[in-house]
Design a binder for these strands. Structure first.
Length: 186
DNA sequence: CCCTGATTCGC
DNA sequence: GCGAATCAGG
C-alpha cells in the first residue's frame, strides 16, 4: 500500500485531530503505526504539543532479533465480539445489533445512564471517537449516546488490558451500590 | 504488560 | 521515500 493523495490527506486530518499514530494506522488500514509516524515526520507534521511521546534520545543500537508485528486489524465480527464480551458480572452490556437493543439486565448493582448523552462525559472530538471498528481489546468501550443514533460512539480511550473501560468510565461503571445513591450526579 | 511519539538507517 | 527496529517515556 502506498501513500496516495487521499491517504495522505486522511493521515494529515486525523493527525491534526489528535488521533494517535496507531489509531490512524487502524483507520487507514494496511499500515503500521510506525509507517504512520514515519510519514508524519516526512511530511513535517510532527510536534503536536501533546504530553505523550516526548522521546529524547540520541543513540544507535544493535538489532539482535527481528520482531513480527502482526497486523492488529479487528474484523467487524471481532470488534462486535469485543463490545459485548460479558467480562464482568455487573456492568452495562451495550448491544448494537438492534436499534432498541440497549436492553440491559440491571443486575442490581450498576447501570450507568447511557441513553441520552451523559453530560458527565468529557467531550471527545469526532475524529477521536471510537467507531466500532476502532475498538480493540484494550480501548474503552463505554457507549456514548443513543446506539440507534448516528451520534453514537464509544469512548475509545485506553483501558487496562482485560478491563472494558478507561479509568474514568470504570469509576462510573463500578460504583458500589451503597455509594451510587449519593453520587448520581457525578 | 500495554501504550505514546521520535529516531535511525537499510532498503 | 518508506517503515521496522528501537528508543525513551507514560
Amino acid at each position: 500500500m502506498s501513500w496516495t493523495a487521499e491517504r495522505v490527506e486522511l493521515l494529515t486530518k486525523l493527525w491534526a485531530d489528535g488521533l494517535s499514530a496507531s489509531q490512524i494506522a487502524g483507520e487507514l488500514g494496511n499500515v503500521t503505526r510506525n509507517a504512520v509516524i514515519g510519514k508524519v515526520h516526512r511530511l513535517g507534521l510532527s510536534g503536536r504539543a501533546k504530553s505523550g511521546g516526548g522521546a529524547t534520545k540520541t543513540r544507535k543500537a544493535p538489532a539482535p532479533a527481528a520482531r513480527v508485528v502482526t497486523s492488529t486489524k479487528p474484523t467487524v465480527a471481532e470488534a462486535i465480539a469485543a463490545v459485548a464480551p460479558t467480562p464482568s458480572p455487573r456492568q452495562v452490556q451495550p448491544t448494537i445489533a438492534g436499534a432498541n437493543a440497549l436492553k440491559v439486565e440491571p443486575i442490581e448493582a450498576i447501570q450507568p445512564e447511557i441513553s441520552p448523552v451523559p453530560s458527565s462525559d468529557l467531550f471527545i472530538p469526532v475524529s477521536e471517537r471510537a467507531s466500532i471498528l476502532t475498538l480493540n481489546e484494550r480501548t474503552c468501550k463505554w457507549p456514548i449516546g443513543d446506539p440507534s443514533s448516528d451520534d453514537f460512539y464509544f469512548c475509545g480511550r485506553q483501558s487496562d488490558a482485560g478491563t472494558p473501560y478507561c479509568a474514568h468510565h470504570r469509576s462510573i461503571a463500578y460504583q458500589p451500590v451503597s455509594d451510587r445513591r449519593n453520587r448520581r450526579a457525578s
